[in-house]
């Protein structure tokens, strides 16, 4: 005996899925994590000799506890830091005050000058984190712009748009992130 088919009431299904939806909306957050990636140096054994670095190859960036900036002995504005760093690393005019470079043969790029310059960043314990990030941001921007420049010259596209990993590795080798953070100083107190 065939029974008449009973229709299942699916009206409350929508309510249940609404509940799930609100639950997920409340427990999750949309924010994607953005940030500046850095690699910390491994701890140095106490009896290691300080490697000899030519003075012209170091750009000293100091930030004091009043968030004031000093670059290679001169008080500098944060807005001009990027240009100073770019000039220092690329040294377009071969000035004897700015960093040296040596020609290195990099696969996919050929012989390119790679800077020996190091940006030494030193901050006080009283420097605000906001200022520190601003300085890091400007220095990263300087490196990224130099990478873009080289990438456009060699491959015709900006660095971020390079899809070939070998190419982007080559650019990263040619323009390294040469930011060294000195041990902090405690002048201004906490």
């Amino acid at each position: 005996m065939a029974r008449p088919s009973v229709e299942i009431n699916s009206g409350s299904m929508a309510d249940i899925s609404f509940l799930l939806l609100t639950f997920f909306l409340l427990t999750s957050s949309i924010d994607t994590d953005l940030g500046i990636l850095r690699k910390l140096p491994p701890p140095v054994p106490p009896d290691t000799d300080v490697p000899e670095i030519n003075k012209r190859n170091v750009l000293n960036v100091l930030v004091n506890k009043y968030d004031q900036l000093m670059v290679s002995g001169k008080p500098t504005d944060i807005n001009s830091l990027k240009q100073v760093a770019k000039d220092f690393l690329s040294n377009p005019t071969n000035s004897p005050d700015l960093s040296e470079s040596k020609i290195i043969d990099i696969p996919n790029l050929g012989k390119v000058p790679v800077t020996k310059g190091i940006i030494s960043l030193k901050n006080d314990r009283g420097t605000s984190y906001e200022m520190y990030i601003k300085v890091q941001d400007e220095l990263t921007a300087a490196v990224n712009e130099l990478r873009d420049q080289l990438s456009k010259e060699k491959f015709g596209v900006p660095f971020a748009k390079l899809t070939n990993v070998d190419y982007s590795d080559a650019i990263s080798t040619a323009v390294p992130v040469a930011i060294s953070e000195a041990e902090p100083e405690n002048i201004g107190g906490k």
Partner: peptide, 17 residues
């Protein structure tokens, strides 16, 4: 950061907007 260096967690990310 010094603590992270000591334990060898070298990859860090400064979270920013």
């Amino acid at each position: 950061k010094q603590e992270l260096r000591k334990i060898g967690a070298f990859k860090i990310n400064y979270s920013t907007r």
